[in-house]
Nucleic acid binder design. Structure first.
Length: 628
DNA sequence: ATAGGGTTAG
């Protein structure tokens, strides 16, 4: 192939300025000047004249022209230059073809790029890398990986550019390990682009430990490598590690950029650290035009239970995309403002972007938590027609939740049967929850069995089933379930509540007495309980898992972690501050009543965030309307 | 002539 290529090039008739006439010389000079000045119209005019005379310019000049087309986003002009460059059987230098290749890639004309790539007689590392990076960015990962193999087969050695591109197309850990050792062998691991890509991909494949190892081997500090590792931990619910890394990064002397701040906000969000999030907000103010950063800020305020601040930001944002709207709609719904969420969805239909399937999850959630069964059905049924959104399992789960809360167990079964996709763990679990709330033991048993078929390790299924039996006093069945759990080595996750006081997080775990002030908290809790009992509080033992009687049953409720956290909050925070608690399990009915009464008794605003939603307790009532 | 980090739901 190489021989033919040289031969063709030497035979092509090229007019060079030294042998051509004066007019041709000035024409070519003009052309070169236009190209360097990026004057596209006049350059193309000169090109017309050159074609009429059958002369051509130097390949370097054409490359300038192609870059000019790229900058002006002139697709058809670019294609004309492509034709001209290859006219009369002439084969341009590889760097010029690479420039054309790059142009097609940047115009997102992948097919054209690949066609040109196939026709190239000589392909160097830049040609391969340009194409690989194009496929990688288009998420056509298989093609990108196949191209890397083709490249190696032709004996072209990948460089750091190739690796940092192709790594992002690595979907299997085995491939990644192979690539990684190849990178080590050729000594490219110290390139900062390669390092940040390695961290990214290990993180994407859930290998945080490996990501951290790659990070630790960094010698020369680099802001993007820092940002990659911080994002890795923030995205995998290791908010505390992410925040510590961020502190270290700042100490090392790197400034907070938009991506790092976004990850910091996400970490604050997952840890419910409103105070710290507000501190980060101060830094965000520098970048108030950054859409992604504003979206993260919006989410932080919603998730940390401060909808008012979220609304202020939402209304002030100059640019809002589908994520901004979805975040705000879901945020309102989760905080108990379902009707406001649906109003916002109405405005979105008029003046916002097209809703996506996540937006619809927020809308259905709002209906579900407001008990709006008919509205929910309407939204669910019209999704496909109005917005072309297919119902995924998540949408079915929302609908099931809606029906379950409304006690429509028969409709739930019907919906599960007509699902277009296979019912998943969440669907069965939702049915199980509804059966508990509405005391349907037979259906519950069926749902639990289906659920355990899909996932025999589902702790929740055993606990729910056991609770349902306990609620209907079927103690023998309770014992059975617990025996199965023990046999399969399954343990109930202990209830855990956290509260932020003076920028420090205090954890309360069921049965754990390690908090330094635990005695004081317990005494205070006893006082509150007797005062509340005087005011008519009756502990609701329906939520006790154990087969115990009287005092003891009441006792195991007494130590629920959220009660301890509430009492600690009342003790440590001034009255004007909201008591914000987040917990790992859903709040039980007894703690819910307790929180309502204590909020009234102590004139406090209490916010409890569970894995699904928020409860704002104020003056004896909760924003969820006792419906959760 | 070719390469990097961030946001909604689950």
């Amino acid at each position: 192939m190489k021989v033919v290529w040289r031969w063709v090039r030497s035979c092509a008739s090229v007019a060079s300025p030294t042998t051509a006439g004066d007019e041709t010389v000035s024409l070519l000079n003009d052309f070169a000047t236009m190209c360097h000045q990026r004057d596209l119209p006049r350059a193309m005019h000169a090109l017309d004249a050159m074609e009429r005379r059958g002369v051509r310019a130097h390949d370097l000049t054409y490359a300038e022209l192609v870059k000019c087309c790229l900058a002006r986003r002139a697709v058809s002009v670019g294609k004309r230059v492509h034709r001209h460059v290859f006219s009369n059987g002439y084969l341009p230098e590889t760097f010029l073809v690479n420039t054309l290749l790059n142009m097609y890639v940047k115009f997102h004309l992948l097919e054209e790029a690949h066609k040109l790539f196939d026709e190239m007689p000589e392909r160097n590392v830049v040609s391969w890398t340009t194409l690989i990076s194009a496929y990688s960015q288009a998420k056509l990962n298989d093609t990108a990986m196949r191209l890397l193999i083709g490249m190696l087969r032709e004996g072209v050695m990948p460089n750091m550019f190739t690796f940092s591109s192709v790594l992002r197309s690595c979907e299997r850990l085995s491939d990644l390990k192979q690539l990684h050792s190849f990178i080590l062998k050729v000594g490219l691991e110290s390139d900062v682009f390669v390092r940040s890509a390695l961290i990214d991909v290990y993180s994407k494949l859930g290998e945080l430990f490996e990501a951290q190892t790659v990070f630790r081997e960094m010698v020369t500090g680099d802001p993007v490598v820092w940002s990659s590792i911080i994002a890795a931990f923030a995205q995998h619910s290791n908010g505390d590690v992410a925040l510590n890394l961020y502190k270290r990064m700042r100490r090392t002397g790197f400034l907070a950029t938009q991506p790092t701040l976004t990850s910091v906000l996400r970490a604050c969000t997952s840890l419910s650290l409103l105070e710290l999030g507000m501190q980060a907000h101060v830094h965000v103010l520098k970048y108030d035009q950054d859409l992604i950063l504003n979206n993260a800020l919006l989410d932080m305020y919603c998730k940390c239970g401060s909808v008012e601040d979220a609304k202020l930001i939402f209304n002030r944002m100059a640019e809002k995309d589908v994520i901004s709207w979805s975040t705000m709609i879901a945020g309102l719904a989760q905080n108990g403002f379902s009707l406001e969420a649906l109003d916002l969805f109405d405005s979105m239909k008029v003046m916002g972007p097209k809703p996506n399937y996540i937006t619809m999850l927020g809308v259905l959630f709002a209906c579900s938590h407001a008990g709006l069964v008919n509205e929910g059905w309407n939204y669910f049924r019209s999704m496909k027609n109005l917005y072309g959104i297919d119902s995924e399992t998540e949408h079915y789960s929302c609908m099931l939740d809606l029906l379950g809360r409304a006690g429509k167990l028969d409709d739930m079964v019907k919906l599960i049967q007509e699902m277009s996709c296979e019912p998943d763990v969440v669907a069965w679990r939702t049915l199980l929850y509804a059966c508990r709330a509405h005391r349907n033991v037979d259906l519950a048993t069926y749902a639990a069995k289906e659920l355990l078929k899909l996932d025999p390790q589902d702790t929740g299924a055993y606990v729910l089933l056991s609770n349902i039996y306990a609620n209907s006093e079927k103690w023998n069945d309770v014992v059975d379930v617990r025996r199965t759990m023990r046999a399969r080595g399954i343990r109930k996750e202990p209830g855990c509540s956290w509260i932020e006081v003076n920028k420090q997080v205090h954890a309360f775990i069921l049965g754990d007495k390690s908090h330094p002030q635990i005695d004081e908290i317990n005494t205070k809790l006893d006082q509150f309980i007797s005062r509340l009992k005087g005011a008519g509080y009756v502990p609701d033992t329906n939520f006790v898992l154990k087969d115990l009687e009287g005092e003891q049953r009441e006792d195991s409720l007494r130590y629920h972690s959220e009660k301890l956290a509430i009492v600690f909050g009342i003790m440590s925070l001034p009255r004007e501050k909201s008591i914000r608690i987040w917990k790992n399990l859903r709040i039980c009915g007894d703690c819910h009543i307790f929180a309502k009464l204590i909020a009234k008794l102590e004139r406090r605003h209490i916010v409890i965030r569970d894995p699904i939603r928020y409860h704002h307790f104020r003056d004896g009532i909760c924003s969820c309307g006792d419906y959760w």
